[in-house]
Computed example of a mutant assay.
Amino acid sequence: MDSSGSHSYTYSVGSNPVSYDSQTLHVLFAGESQTLPLHQAGPKIYDYYLLHFIESGSGSFHTEQHKYELGEGDCFLIHPAQLVSYISDPNQPWRYRWAAFTGAEADRLVQQAGFSPDTPVLAAAEGRVIPDALAGMMGAFNANRESAHLTSLGYLYLIIGEAAERLSTHSRLPGTGSQVQRTVKQMIHYMSSQYAHPVSIEQMCDSLGYNRAYLSRVFKQETGLSPVTYLLKLRIDKSRQLLRERPELSVEQVASSVGLTDALYFSRQFKRFCGQSPTAYRIATARRGDNSSR
């Protein structure tokens, strides 16, 4: 920023070449500006979300409930139907980037990030994820290709992901009940999405950032099963579905499809959980289906 107090006003914006037509999520435009001292917008109401990232300078952001003094690295999100205003500092006016977005999914996405009318500010965002994503949106729109619509959504999700990481109210330290339940849900989701691959419990623990002993303990407290047993039961349950619905698949192919490449091990574990071999289970379910159709 020019320390002499002389600032040249700049303003540039790129609009989405794909017009908004009730899409579930849509970035309307993205821009950047070096504001003049005491540059003010509002008080006014917007009918879309408008996110600003402050690259340099300072100023104040006013909502219906609060006033925020903001500077370099801060973000503020204007919510639809909220009366707001914002004004640049008289000596070090803001230089910022922004993007506007809307759509049926926008509310849910904003809530997932941790923003609300009472929490509209992300303080001192680290790194370059958000400003680079905003710049990427603007560049994509200025290229005036229809693919820019999809590109802008990718950048928006990057921004939301970064905000969620920073605004999350959940501590990364284990201990609280809500955190334990959240961690167990993450483990269940991980296994439910990865069961068909040769995933290990160690890999899952590494991806979640906890040691295996801790995760095994809290998982069993919440579910009554160890992670190893839960994953195996999940695979057996999926294999039962395949045995019933895909008669053209061999037992070996079913085993491989649920992440168990050793067919003999699969058959032993299937009998352990179901009381009969995979082949006997398939024959019995097929016979019951034939009898019910008569």
Rank of each mutant, 00 (worst) to 15 (best):
Ser56Met: 05
Leu150Asn: 04
Ser207Cys: 07
Ala125Ser: 08
Gly14Arg: 02
His39Ser: 07
Val228Pro: 01
Thr102Gly: 02
Pro17Ala: 06
Asp262Tyr: 10
Pro17Tyr: 04
Leu83Ala: 11
Gln186Thr: 03
Gln221Arg: 14
Asp132Cys: 03
Ala143Glu: 13
Asp118Phe: 04
His52Thr: 07
His62Phe: 13
Gly59Pro: 01
Ala124Trp: 08
Ala148Ser: 08
Ile188Arg: 14
Phe141Glu: 01
Glu72Ser: 14
Arg97Gln: 13
Gly59Trp: 03
Ile236Val: 15
Gln253Ala: 15
Arg282Val: 03
Gly114Met: 02
Glu222Gly: 05
Arg128Ile: 06
Gln179Thr: 12
Arg246Lys: 14
Arg268Phe: 09
Phe76Gln: 04
Leu109Arg: 00
Thr176Gly: 08
Leu208Tyr: 05
Thr176His: 12
Ser19Gly: 04
Leu260Glu: 09
Lys185Pro: 00
Thr151His: 09
Trp98Ser: 01
Gly154Asp: 09
Gln194His: 13
Leu36Lys: 06
Trp94Asn: 07
Ile236Met: 14
Ser4Arg: 05
Asn144Tyr: 04
Leu249Arg: 07
Ser147Gly: 08
Gly139His: 09
Thr261Ser: 15
Lys220Asn: 10
Thr229Met: 15
Leu156Ala: 01
Leu51Glu: 00
Ser147Glu: 11
Met137Glu: 01
Tyr214Arg: 05
Leu109Met: 06
Tyr281Glu: 06
Tyr195Pro: 03
Ala125Trp: 00
Val184Gln: 11
Gly209Gln: 12
Ala125Tyr: 00
Gln34Ser: 07
Phe141Leu: 05
Gly59Gln: 03
Ala113Lys: 00
Leu243Pro: 01
Ser200Ala: 14
Ala164Arg: 13
Thr279Ser: 13
Pro198Gln: 15
Ile78Phe: 13
Pro131Tyr: 05
Gln181Lys: 13
Pro120Arg: 00
Ser19Ala: 11
Glu222Trp: 11
Ser3His: 08
Asp2Phe: 06
Gly139Pro: 02
Phe270Tyr: 01
Gln82His: 12
Asp132Gly: 02
Glu146Asp: 13
Phe76Asp: 03
Leu122Lys: 00
Tyr230Phe: 15
Gly57Asp: 05
Gln181Val: 10
Ile283Glu: 13
Glu252Ser: 15
Ser277Gly: 09
Asp89His: 12
Met187Ala: 11
Tyr190Cys: 05
Gln179Tyr: 08
Leu70Thr: 03
Asp89Asn: 13
Gln34Met: 08
His170Leu: 15
Ser147Ala: 13
Cys274Trp: 03
Gly175Ile: 05
Gly71Ala: 09
Ser192Val: 03
Ala104His: 02
Phe115Met: 01
Ala133Thr: 02
Cys205His: 06
Val180Gly: 03
Leu25Met: 10
Tyr48Asn: 11
Ile160Trp: 01
Gly139Ile: 06
Ser116Gly: 04
Tyr68Phe: 15
Pro37Phe: 04
Leu70Tyr: 04
Val110Asp: 02
Gln112Gly: 06
Pro247Trp: 11
Glu222Asn: 10
Pro117Asn: 10
Glu126Asn: 05
Gln253Gly: 07
Asn142Met: 11
Thr261Ile: 09
Ser152Asp: 01
Ile130Arg: 00
Gly103Leu: 00
Trp94His: 05
Thr119Met: 03
Ala143Phe: 09
Tyr265Ile: 04
Gln111Lys: 10
Gly127Ala: 02
Gly161Glu: 08
Phe273Tyr: 15
